[in-house]
Design a protein around this nucleic acid. Structure first.
Lengths: 236, 236
DNA sequence: CGTAAATAGATAGTGCTACTATCCACTTGT
DNA sequence: ACAAGTGGATAGTAGCACTATCTATTTACG
């Protein structure tokens, strides 16, 4: 397969493919001549994975490189490769904050209570702690036991996902499946939650309207995105 | 409160605050002199909201402006304001793709089946459709009924969140609460799912090891992020 | 009172990221 | 034969989120 065919197959422009080659995200094709190389199925899969990580997972190119390095490191067990991926996903600078440190302790205790085998270095722990602190600063009670029900429900589906990926014939395909499943299902669950929130809001809205005199609330649908009082420009 | 105090209170640098003022994210303080303005509690809250949307929600500044415009638009009902926020969250360019169009129909049918009152224009619908298509391209079965269990579980918690926000005394505070709750809890759920995935992977790993001869798999913890065979530089 | 520091507001500049564009020396399909 | 495509290298660009600098004030402090 030529680079133009690879481009057509995946919808990624030729210059972008060249860029990914340069950046070491995509392995070079088999050189056929000084200016001719052959790409295969693995390149298509890899390119799709790159786009999924960038578009869906919103990972920077540098993180994608790290993730792919873990995927490709044959010496690494499936679990360890997956761990590397998780750590790359949550990479990012952390604040130094006493409240967060305290929340980290809470999160760790909760994880222990759940009997989850999670690395001490897992960045998700501190991420979650930061989120807890943010919620509290906005007045939310935000206790860890709020998440028990969710954890009870989500864990089996995670186990299923892990088994599904591990059942793949090829190690690389297994890791890729795990990575894609992690990133894409995560977004899918988020979108479903947004739909549920809109539905819940609609219900509450209708209920509230029923208890008020008619006409006190706009009857139209979702408001257009307006420039409010602090908008930069005057409405055209 | 002076701008330097506002900065100290929120941890946002004075130049950044000026930038947000310029960009219309933060309303100006009350002018006391040609070069003196007074900021209040609302500015602290607003600034925290801006940081939450940017840091946690990873929204671009332009989207933050739209979200805040909806928050501030007093003419808009709580539900409509929230709808605007949801739409801003999911803003982004969409691909033209027959597979996605077909998936949109599936998603819409599923939403109807759930009896969720969701605007036809809700971007989350198409987002979810795109994710479904991505999953299928990677070989996942990805049927909508997979999400029924999750939806059953998440909807009550969304209703609770909506009620919690609507119970706020002030309309602006109510919308702010809804926005923060949406964005921050979404991330929190994602982090918990990542922890659950790691735990599930660890379990599967241990189970698999028990059925293999000793020493065939590395015993260490999570692999360091290595430069694999396609890494750009040689290992230092 | 005098002076260093801070402030609002304006304009210009910076650092980073993820591409694009252009070149060149070749090779391939028609 | 020759336009179109290719690999490889180098340079340029667009957009974003700040950051820096400037001016004309005004205030806080010794």
């Amino acid at each position: 397969m030529k680079i133009s065919e690879l481009s057509a197959e995946t919808g990624v422009s030729v210059p972008s493919i060249k860029y990914y080659l340069r950046e070491g995200l995509l392995p070079a094709g088999v050189a056929v001549a000084t200016n001719q190389a052959d790409y295969g199925e693995a390149h298509i899969r890899r390119l799709r994975l790159i786009r999924a990580l960038i578009d869906v997972g919103e990972l920077p190119v540098a993180s994608v490189r790290n993730v792919l390095a873990a995927v490709d490191s044959e010496r690494t067990s499936l679990h360890d490769a997956f761990g590397s991926v998780m750590h790359s996903l949550d990479a990012g600078s952390h604040v130094v904050d006493a409240d967060v440190d305290a929340a980290v302790v809470e999160v760790r205790r909760w994880i222990r209570h759940r009997k989850w085998a999670v690395e001490a270095t897992a960045p998700a722990t501190r991420m979650l702690a930061e989120l807890i602190v943010t919620l509290r600063r906005f007045g939310f009670p935000a206790q860890m036991n709020e998440f028990d029900r969710y954890a009870d429900q989500i864990f089996p589906s995670c186990e299923f996902g892990v088994e599904y990926a591990r059942a793949m014939p090829d190690r690389t395909v297994a890791v890729e499946t795990m990575v894609v499943g992690t990133v894409v299902y995560e977004r899918a669950f988020a979108e479903i939650r947004r739909l549920a929130l809109e539905a819940a809001s609609a219900r509450a809205h209708v209920r509230a309207r029923a208890t008020r005199p008619r006409g006190t609330i706009r009857r139209s649908g979702v408001a257009p995105v307006l420039r409010g009082p602090i908008g930069r420009d005057a409405p055209g």
